[in-house]
Design a protein around this nucleic acid. Structure first.
Length: 877
RNA sequence: GGGUGCAUAGCUCAGCGGUAGAGCGCCGCCCUUACAAGGCGGAUGUCGGCGGUUCGAACCCGUCUGCACCCACCA
């Protein structure tokens, strides 16, 4: 051992030898994060002259804690913003949380229930105060988790959708929409959750196939009777018609007549309506306008009365034997009563049909006639669709566009009122004489006798739809708004494309004079378990990201998630894979340790090309290419390719091959060792910077140690040096190939490390078949008969023998297989082999074609000899 | 009913016209002074089925089968 392999040649990093042999995330992460925040790296300056780059956080619900899906999303956003920050953009990653109306109210109500109380025991004001208290605790938990993840958010700008400023934005846009007649109040069939006791919008309803029972009931008497089928017998109390198809001859005689409604003293008309499918069931439908959206429409067309039969708890309100029964009890009671009257004409049969459930509590939705507030979405949605259609906003991956269009082009009006207490109260006052007044943020509410404010609050997505500009101070024209609106990109899950993305598009375009809220939407998939199953608490496969971060480090969790992130595709993640990422972090750690121990340096210019060894030129050439690839993948939101590419470059090429090659250089010492120290330093410097956005902690710790500089967070993003050396790349590829073959040979022959190769050995068994197969595949020529031969010799015991890879192929069979034109075949072969970095040619003979490949191995002969010699000395690599 | 994807190694997935790949798992050898959370070598695939286009198809076209998701909706 010489001194210069033990001591850094120069530089300030002698302390680096103290790095432990394993990376311990727990010891550095918290310290580094606090340092970043203290130094203000993540704070965005709206007065800066730099170009802006802004992303808003999809605000997590204050309910509870972050799950792996958040960790995933945050990793992507953090990687994007960290890179842009390094590239010199004025970067804003806007943090904040959503008040999550129903979800939060449900949780706090559940807490109250444990104390035996309901929200009504507290009253509205005290209840809301209680929710605020709860929010204070829960919100803190979330920001703690974000710090653990390393999220580079600007904490000084944290917002909450119920903040004063954001509430002002809500009131402002409500008033503007109201004045533009895009918000209105109307009585319609809405999706009612009898447990949450509120209306919900169409997309908050989840449909699933439920088992029901279809019963057939005879309405009317004798000639004037008709059989209807239903799964919801209890609604018959509210029937106000029977509908049949206008062309249905079976019932033509009944249309316009009235028939008796069983169990009541009412009679109802038979109407003809196109909606009825004559093929389905009996072709006759009971019509309950107050409890079914389709029936409501039929009722409208035929001017039918709307008979409400259930209250908000889905309990029957009609006087009589069924009053007070809930909908399920009423269903069986009514069927029993009908059977007693002989009106059940077909036994009930099991019937699977799609039933709506509340997305918050899974209770079966009760469609219900109700007075609610609505947004008239058609004009807003048209603008939202056009912004994507005309390219002002692009959606990644592109396949998701059709989903987006399918939705914005077919929207029903949006029910925005909720019968909750937690949320933005609708800024409308009702006067004593029936007046309705919408109050803007700078107006005094009416105060006279008899005025009262609307008690409903707004759908939580109403305020989150304003997020890209409300967080920047809108409706004020703030400097922040000018600087950071529109956002550069929106990163979110495809599951909230309609809930959130489309709403932001509608509101953004409307409020910001036609400027969309972001230029690009990058949609990611959902995190799943290692078998591709959806993660859920009830299934028991949900993972708390904190547990994994504790065990393996935040970088490992982040890298695993990034590595699975193909655009728009779900991401499976398993603990094994996090371990693999942890191993990678440790590998980076130890490779850097090796570099430091051997005096790698980042100081001074790179040595001139003529001083570089083939290995140096190869790795620098590859480094340039990798920087460009990484840039392309970042720009295209290809996180999986990005991560995988960097993983393999770092591990296979830099850590395995280049580092191994430098070992002999370092041992030899002298000027070549100096050169390689600088090159190794350069390569690690760049690799750490490239990896930093994905794995911020380990790279920060190592980069600052390696370079002695302040922080990689504010380091320059690497640029492609433009240096390329095809010859060196091929040369090293040849070296790698040969070394691998020698190793394989030794392994096949069972040679122990350190054991010298005997002078004579039988080689026939080993690599020849591989060469032959490669030849065949390469040429895409199946050998006809047994004419094909290939021979190869390997450098053993220091002696290198030229490889003679040639084959003779019977042309009789091949001539058909190739084209009739051999010249064309030759041309194609040339192209093919050129792609593979080899020379190839066909030579024609009367009865056969000789195909030869000349691999450029001669060029590498010197290195091959050297490496082979080293292999004799260094038994394994 | 309408739409969008997907079927490739034991598992989870890349590749999308030119030598079938990765991670994990598996087998063998090695505690070699950066790293055993490591190193070296290896095995494993009718690339879902059937047709077609092409000199050449995992990749393009058609078709079938099976899955997933979204939308509409089922009296």
């Amino acid at each position: 051992m010489t001194d210069n392999t033990q001591q850094p040649a120069h530089g300030p990093h002698s302390a680096s030898a103290d790095l432990p042999t394993q990376y311990a995330p727990a010891e550095v992460e918290e310290k580094l994060y606090e340092r970043w925040v203290e130094r203000g790296y993540f704070e965005a300056d709206e007065e800066s002259g730099k170009d802006p780059y802004a992303i808003v956080i999809p605000p997590p619900n204050v309910t509870g804690s972050l799950h792996l899906g958040h960790a995933f999303e945050h990793t992507l956003i953090d990687a994007l913003t960290r890179r842009k920050r390094m590239q010199g953009y004025e970067t804003l990653w806007q943090p904040g949380m959503d008040h999550a109306g129903i979800a939060t109210q449900n949780i706090v109500e559940r807490e109250l229930a444990k104390e035996g109380k309901s929200r009504h025991d507290l009253g509205r004001e005290a209840f809301v105060e209680r929710v605020w208290r709860w929010k204070a605790e829960s919100g803190g938990q979330i920001s703690g988790q974000m710090r653990r993840l390393g999220d580079g958010v600007d904490w000084s700008r944290e917002r909450f959708t119920m903040d004063e400023g954001l509430s002002r934005a809500v009131q402002t846009i409500f008033k503007r929409l109201y004045d533009d007649e895009l918000i209105y109040r109307a009585e319609r069939i809405i999706n009612w959750c009898p447990r949450c006791l509120t209306a919900i919008s169409d997309i908050e309803v989840e449909y699933q196939d439920d088992e029901g029972e279809l019963v057939s009931i005879r309405y009317g008497e004798g000639e004037d009777s008709v059989v209807v089928a239903t799964t919801r017998a209890e609604t018959m109390l509210g029937d106000t018609a029977v509908a049949v198809h206008p062309d249905d001859d079976r019932y033509a005689h009944l249309v316009g007549r009235r028939i008796a409604l069983p169990l009541t003293d009412r009679s109802i008309p038979v109407v003809a309506d196109e909606h009825v499918d004559p093929e389905f069931g009996t072709g006759a439908v009971k019509v309950t306008p107050a409890h079914d959206p389709n029936d409501f429409e039929i009722g409208r067309r035929h001017d039918l009365p709307q008979q409400t039969v259930m209250d908000e708890h889905a309990v029957i309100t009609v006087h009589g034997p069924f009053q007070g029964l809930d909908r399920l009890e009423a269903r069986s009671a009514i069927v029993a009563a009908l059977r007693a009257e002989g009106r059940i004409v077909a036994e009930k049969r099991p019937y699977t049909h799609s039933v709506g459930h509340c997305s918050r509590c899974k209770t079966t939705i009760e469609p219900r006639l109700s007075m609610q507030w609505w947004v008239k979405v058609a004009p807003l949605a048209r603008a939202a669709g056009d912004a994507v259609r005309d390219g002002r906003v692009t959606i990644h991956p592109k396949e998701m566009e059709s989903r987006y269009f399918g939705w914005v082009d077919n929207l029903h009006d949006w029910c925005i009122s909720r019968q909750l207490w937690w949320g933005h109260r609708i800024p409308v006052w009702y006067g004593p004489g029936g007046e309705v007044r919408c109050v803007g943020p700078d107006e005094e509410p009416p105060s006279g006798e008899g005025w009262r404010q609307e008690t409903d609050v707004l759908d939580t997505w109403f305020s989150s739809g304003l997020w890209p500009f409300s967080t920047l101070g809108w409706p004020e024209r703030t400097r922040s708004l000018e600087k950071f609106y529109p956002n550069s990109v929106l990163v979110t899950g495809y599951d909230i494309l309609f809930f959130w993305v489309a709403r932001m598009m509608m509101f953004g375009l409307y409020a910001m004079d036609g400027t969309p809220p972001f230029r690009t939407v990058a949609l990611h998939g959902m995190v799943r378990d290692q078998f591709g199953k959806k993660m859920s608490k009830s299934f028991g496969n949900a993972v708390d990201p904190l547990e994994w971060m504790d065990e393996y480090g935040s970088d490992a969790v982040r890298f695993t998630l990034a590595r699975g992130a193909n655009p728009g595709v779900d991401v499976p993640i398993g603990e094994d894979w996090v371990q693999a990422s942890r191993n990678f972090a440790n590998k980076i750690w130890n490779a850097t340790r090796f570099a430091l121990l051997n005096g790698a340096t980042v100081e001074g210019p790179l040595p001139a090309p003529e001083e570089l060894s083939a290995a140096d030129r190869w790795i620098l050439s590859r480094l340039g290419a990798v920087v460009s690839e990484a840039d392309a993948h970042y720009d295209d939101y290809q996180f999986a390719k990005l991560s995988d590419g960097l993983f393999h470059f770092a591990w296979d090429e830099v850590f395995d091959w280049y580092v191994e090659l430098t070992k002999t250089t370092f041992q030899a010492g002298g000027r070549p060792a100096e050169v390689s120290r600088r090159v190794l330093g350069e390569v690690l410097d760049v690799v750490l910077r490239l990896l930093h956005p994905l794995v911020p902690f380990v790279t920060e710790e190592l980069w600052t140690t390696l370079t002695g500089r302040e922080s990689v967070v504010v380091a320059d993003w690497p640029a492609d040096s433009g240096f390329r050396d095809r010859a060196a790349e091929e040369e090293i590829a040849a070296v790698r190939h040969l070394v691998t073959e020698v190793r394989r040979f030794r392994a096949d022959q069972g040679l122990q490390p350190g054991q010298r190769v005997p002078a004579r050995m039988d080689l026939t068994a080993t690599p020849l078949a591989a060469h032959e197969a490669a030849m065949r595949a390469l040429l895409r020529l199946q050998p006809a008969g047994e004419d094909f031969t290939a021979t190869a010799s390997l450098p053993i015991a220091g002696a290198t023998v030229a490889l003679d890879l040639s084959g003779a192929i019977d042309v009789g069979a091949e001539r058909k297989r190739l084209t009739k034109d051999l010249a064309a075949a030759e041309k194609e072969l040339k192209q093919t082999t050129a792609k593979l970095g080899n020379d190839g040619f066909l030579s024609k003979a009367p009865d056969h074609v000789v195909v030869k490949i000349r691999a450029r191995r001669e060029a590498a002969e010197a290195d091959i000899a050297r490496i082979t010699a080293q292999l004799e000395r260094l038994p394994q690599g």
